[in-house]
Design a protein around this nucleic acid. Structure first.
Lengths: 348, 348
DNA sequence: CTGTTAGCGCATTCAT
DNA sequence: ATGAATGCGCTAACAG
């Protein structure tokens, strides 16, 4: 039942030409006569021939494929990111192999190894992976773009978000709203992004000379909910919460609501990432915006240029600076629905 | 700078054995002496050798890779789905090539063609693709699992959601809450899933002998918002809305809220999919639940069995029946916070 | 148990 | 402008 797919030989035979001519037609190499081209095309069509990518890559030493290693956390952030990468990959006619759900460095290393030889380059987002683990699992010959939290310390090109700076901006913003007891819900321990955000928060609090309050979280909504409930129950209750990411901020929001506290009146809330849903909840969530899809696209494009440069490119570390998006959840001039209508009317 | 990666020959040379032995060790084929195995492993290690997947697939006729074609719509539904597939793929030691953002049949066809030859099988989710387009872009020799809306009509194995039945259940549920004027916000025209849901709604309304009201939407939050605003402004205002998916339902929820209407008191709302956020908004959203990640995992596993069966498998159409999850947004016995705490405490 | 060898499908010299 | 021949890295069949 499963017919052997047509090979270049079959095409050549049917077109009455040599395999070399078929190859030339298909790759637009050299010059080919009009009649030959036509016959080849006809044969390709009727045999529905498609070149064997393996055989081709054996010779060209390219796979036209790039790999993406993602952490366990999924949700809106990563799907947006992949979307951006996918769009860029399509334009460059590249394929995208994804491998997600790696919850520790070992798994991520394994995934990296298993992709070697089948991709031309790799984009790695594994907040658990440090320089040592990375070096161990990758040959220098494979172009790699890091999007890890602590990538700046590593001898590899990278794109990273300025988590520390962003956290400072957010914390200062909450303080500027007149809030004093600003608490922080931290991301998972060992996650470099989470730690940078926490550090930024601590720096801003120290700067303001206010005692910090840090609660544990893991970047998931549920942990934000628990932290929010804990905050609501505190004797000396914080009047603002900076959650390590938007999903936790949403959890905080709900917990506050269920505890009968109003946001922003009683407690202001800020998040990080600006995932699509952030502008769609009520109160709309103040957050640090990262243009996620665009960052994904940039990442892919940089990886491509690394591949093209064949190791001759300088190793530089690009930094994406998140921008503050002040919405309702941190609004101190009380009242209403600011901006929500327009945001949605323009198309979520 | 870019060293040629080590080949099997390099390994053989360093280990002082033949390439055949190296191959045997690596593939656990045949029997190999302990000393040889050790020397090979040592050489593999120090040369950090990794087999060239192209060369291997040339001879084994397998790529150990499966492709996934996704539509333009992204967001939580598809990221969950991919997550499920990815998990299953890892267990089976397969790689996953994804190609998303196809907003029409032509683009999807192109993506399908471009994957031929580099995957062992394909999972296709393209609600725009009909039988004809599909047949045109795929050779019978490639195992394919369809997850399109109208896949039951096609001569290919499939997994589909019972959209029609689910829509009936939801519509009847809203009617059973004592609602009479139940409106429907439809998904994009030409999308088979959307059309099945609309048809299910119409059927249930006809059954109840009530005049249907259908508003246009495109599965995006913003379109739900617009529809919600329109509903709020109607002279004879509906007392319930069944949105074609959860994201539109969220939009409806917000529009109602901004219009000063209460949900569920004034207008009940139901969605479809049960994306993670559905249980986390307030009022929590009543919806038709599909275990998305599990469905993704099933899909991948079925594709694998199709591949293993090498065309000898019967073509069957599996149907996933969504189940009603009645939450606050459709609750007629008014009042509160039902169930929200437990849902979150258990881990969003 | 191990080595030799053919050939997978293709791009690419080198001839013509 | 076209064809014949070579070899990419690997597995498998065959020898030994």
């Amino acid at each position: 039942m499963v017919l052997r797919p047509a090979t270049i030989k079959d095409v050549a035979a049917r077109a009455g030409v040599s395999v070399a001519s078929v190859s030339r037609v298909l790759n637009a190499q050299g010059v080919v006569g009009e009649d030959v081209r036509a016959r080849v095309m006809e044969a390709v069509e009727t045999l529905s021939y498609v070149p064997h990518s393996g055989a081709r890559s054996l010779i060209t030493r390219k796979t036209d494929t790039v790999g993406v290693i993602l952490p366990d956390l999924f949700g809106e952030f990563f799907s947006e990111l992949i979307r951006g990468m996918d769009l860029a990959a399509r334009e460059k006619r590249l394929h995208l192999i994804v491998s997600s759900s790696h919850d520790d460095a070992e798994e991520a290393s394994f995934a990296i190894k298993s992709m070697r030889g089948r991709v031309d380059g790799l984009i790695i987002l594994s907040p658990h992976l440090d320089a040592a683990a990375l070096a161990a699992s990758m040959p220098r010959s494979l172009p790699v773009l890091l999007m890890n939290g602590g990538a700046r310390d590593v001898d590899r090109p990278s794109i990273t978000v300025d988590n520390h700076g962003g956290a400072e901006v957010m914390t200062r913003h909450l303080l500027a709203q007149g809030r004093r007891r600003v608490a922080h819900v931290a991301g998972p321990v060992g996650n470099l992004e989470a730690e940078a955000r926490r550090a930024g928060y601590l720096a801003a609090m120290a700067e303001a000379g206010i005692e910090p309050v840090v609660l544990d979280g893991d970047f998931d909504q549920a942990s934000g909910f628990r932290a929010g409930a804990a905050i609501a129950a505190m004797d000396i209750r914080p009047d603002a919460v900076f959650a390590g990411n938007d999903m936790m901020a949403l959890g905080v929001l709900l917990a506050l609501q269920e505890a009968g506290l109003r946001c922003p009146e009683d407690v202001a809330v800020g998040g990080f990432d600006d995932v699509p849903i952030a502008s769609l909840v009520r109160p709309a969530l103040t957050t640090m915006r990262i243009d996620i899809a665009e960052t994904g696209r940039r990442a892919l494009e940089r990886l491509v240029s690394l591949i093209d440069a064949a190791g001759e490119a300088p190793i530089n570390h690009e930094i994406v600076r998140p921008t503050l998006v002040a919405r309702q959840s941190s609004n101190s001039s009380n009242s209403g629905n600011s901006g929500s209508k327009s945001a949605l009317a323009q198309g979520g």
